[in-house]
Design a protein around this nucleic acid. Structure first.
Lengths: 194, 194
DNA sequence: CGGATCGTTGATCAACTTCAACGGTCGTGG
DNA sequence: CCACGACCGTTGAAGTTGATCAACGATCCG
């Protein structure tokens, strides 16, 4: 399962890792398995780990006073999960993270990650690229949310991340888009008629 | 005008800069003035510079096919502006950036910034902190957009960035929130009645 | 087999947009 | 320096979009 991570780092840093570096990486990340519906993090928890998904699917979300869930992020293979705010500041999280399928993760603490950055330069390059990509995708999602209709936002997601739509149930997709499950159902019906 | 930047870097890196470092920074950033309504960047331009605002107010936005503007970002003193995507990849921008007031900026190119990071460690620390803060604020804005009503989003902005509401005309605030100017006007009226 | 969950559909309701009109203010050119 | 036009915020009326509530069938899983 470490090979997926090594491959990921190679892809994102454009650096081929030495055997020593690979070993350092494997020592720094600890495996964790989650059953479907199991929490990785609950509201109020400190987020100790940054997790790399080698298998499965997770979601990060809040629950409002009416009990409605609002999904801010999905994660599948080769994605990272953590409540960044809680992870960086080591403060209680405002979010829940749980497994939507049986999942396998590789986890690292903040301190260990800093150490690894010093030991393996490729990690620094990879993290920089990840940060840039997430900045850009956040910007796009914000733009989408403030300027497009529900249908356009769904079409957008369909084009950008078709994997997610195949992978997560429709009501979660609706929550991610900020619309009701009923509305998404109707939008999909509309679209098949065209 | 450089003192604002030096102070900012000191604040965000928690490092006191040597005279040499201050000099290096001043040499790397070039001043630029903008008249109100003047473009810093137009759609299709390559974004050559990252700009630090020492005075004034700017906005980053798109214009849709109906001619409606959608503001994704504001900037005032001690904020940075650039179309990150276009800046990093040196590709044509999808956004416009212009001055809402007469403004003064300090600009740096990507290469010069990389050089400066090697020369002044405090810059690296500062950028890391900026990245973290922007990640968190993006996450919050996305969460706000998908889970709150227009009124809640306005109240949120009022609490988080009161400076922006005092500084930018109401129709721009509405655009930033993703609602029509009329709706914002009515929301404000509602709120004063309470 | 039985309960829970999910997607769908219909009816009604609330939120927000659009269109139009009006008064106030600001900046600009004559 | 004034007058005019452009822009901005406000308000009303009507229209649209999406939310809510309720019911139903299908599927999945224990």
């Amino acid at each position: 399962m470490y090979d997926i991570l090594i491959q990921y780092i190679t892809d994102y840093s454009s650096v081929i890792l030495s055997d020593e570096e690979s070993t350092l990486i494997q020592e720094a990340f600890k495996p964790k398995k989650l059953r479907k519906r199991q929490y990785l993090l609950q509201e109020g928890d400190i987020c100790k780990y940054l997790s790399f998904i080698t298998k499965g699917a997770l979601r990060q979300y809040t629950v409002d006073d009416k009990g409605v869930e609002h999904i801010v992020r999905f994660g599948i293979e080769r994605w990272w999960v953590a409540d960044y705010e809680a992870f960086i500041n080591q403060t209680p999280s405002k979010y829940h993270i749980d497994a939507v399928e049986d999942s396998e993760l590789l986890q690292i603490t903040n301190e260990r990650l800093e150490e690894l950055k010093r030991q393996v330069p490729a990690i620094v390059v990879m993290i920089k690229k990840m940060d840039q990509r997430s900045y850009i995708s956040h910007q796009k999602r914000i733009h989408s949310a403030i300027s497009h209709t529900a249908e356009d936002r769904y079409t957008d997601l369909l084009n950008t991340y078709p994997e997610l739509i195949q992978r997560f149930p429709q009501n979660m997709i609706a929550s991610y888009l900020g619309i009701s499950p009923e509305t998404l159902s109707r939008i999909r019906k509309q679209m098949t008629l065209k």
